[in-house]
Simulated assay, not measured.
Amino acid sequence: MKAVKRLLLVIFIIYLVPTFASAGLWAMRDHPSGWSAARWSSAGILPKPEDAPDAAIYVFSAMTGGLKGSVASHAWIVFKEKGAKAYTRYDKVGWGSPIRRNHREPDAYWYSNPPQLVTKITGSKAELLIPNKVEGAIAAYPYAEPGGYTIWPGPNSNTFVAYVLRTLPELGAVLPPHAVGRDYLPNGEFVHLDEDGRDLHVTIRGLIGFSAGVRSGFELHVLGLVAGLDLANPGIKVPAVGRIGI
């Protein structure tokens, strides 16, 4: 019984305390009154395509709207082939046809929240990856049809981007801890080893499990909340808060 109480205390301290703290801070801030009142314009992060002719791949994440915005973010993928005159953006959303192409500016605010750069690849590496792997991974995502979206535990917007990142370890990134739904493995998978063999993911429908490896470090996820250690870029991963560098 003591062991169970200690376990519950650890879970409370690691997962629930930062979640409640994040929710409290969120409640004290100003928020748009609704979808139509939110800011969706460009945040001015990306260079104009004509000023950056090289191929490029970006992954962005921004806190989402409503109460879930206190603990959860939304991720999307942007890329541009060499010499292209425009960026291409892919998101997964919860209405209509889930996978959306260019429905927002590539670096737009999301529910008035500024996007954060998760990773970027430019130059010859991006030039090879875009036609050979990025577009293929997006096309292969198994929940791309209407109805293929569940806000929690997944498959949601973060499930989609995490799938692409796992399929393309060359991008060298994982989504932040507040990307709820990222640990949901498609098709009922219990165990997934990334294509380069350097990250292992074990989960029960995205509800409880762990990830370990070069990119993930060591993570434990409980009910969509992620805590862990970043080993490649030393830091800690805090549920609902994000990564804090050391």
Rank of each mutant, 00 (worst) to 15 (best):
K2Y: 07
K5W: 07
R6E: 11
I11K: 03
L16W: 11
A23Q: 15
A27W: 09
M28P: 00
M28T: 15
D30V: 15
A37W: 03
W40I: 01
S41F: 13
S42N: 13
S42R: 13
A43H: 13
G44E: 09
K48Y: 10
D51C: 11
D54G: 04
F60P: 03
L67C: 09
G69E: 06
S70M: 06
A72M: 15
S73Q: 07
H74L: 15
A75L: 04
I77D: 02
K80D: 08
A84G: 14
K85F: 12
K85C: 08
Y87Q: 02
V93N: 03
G94P: 07
S97H: 08
I99S: 04
R104W: 14
P106F: 01
A108I: 06
Y109C: 12
Y109I: 15
W110G: 00
V118Y: 00
T119C: 13
K125S: 09
A126R: 02
E127K: 11
L129W: 00
K133P: 01
A140I: 05
G148M: 01
I151D: 12
N156C: 08
N158P: 02
V161W: 05
A162D: 12
V164F: 02
L165N: 06
R166P: 01
T167W: 03
L168T: 02
P169T: 11
L171D: 03
P186S: 08
L193G: 10
D196V: 03
T203N: 09
R205C: 02
G206D: 09
L207S: 04
L207I: 15
I208L: 11
A212M: 13
G213C: 09
R215K: 08
R215G: 00
G217F: 10
L223Q: 11
G224D: 05
G224I: 10
A227D: 00
L231Y: 10
A232W: 12
N233H: 13
N233S: 14
P234C: 14
I236C: 11
I236G: 07
A240E: 00
A240K: 00
A240G: 03
G242F: 03
G245K: 10
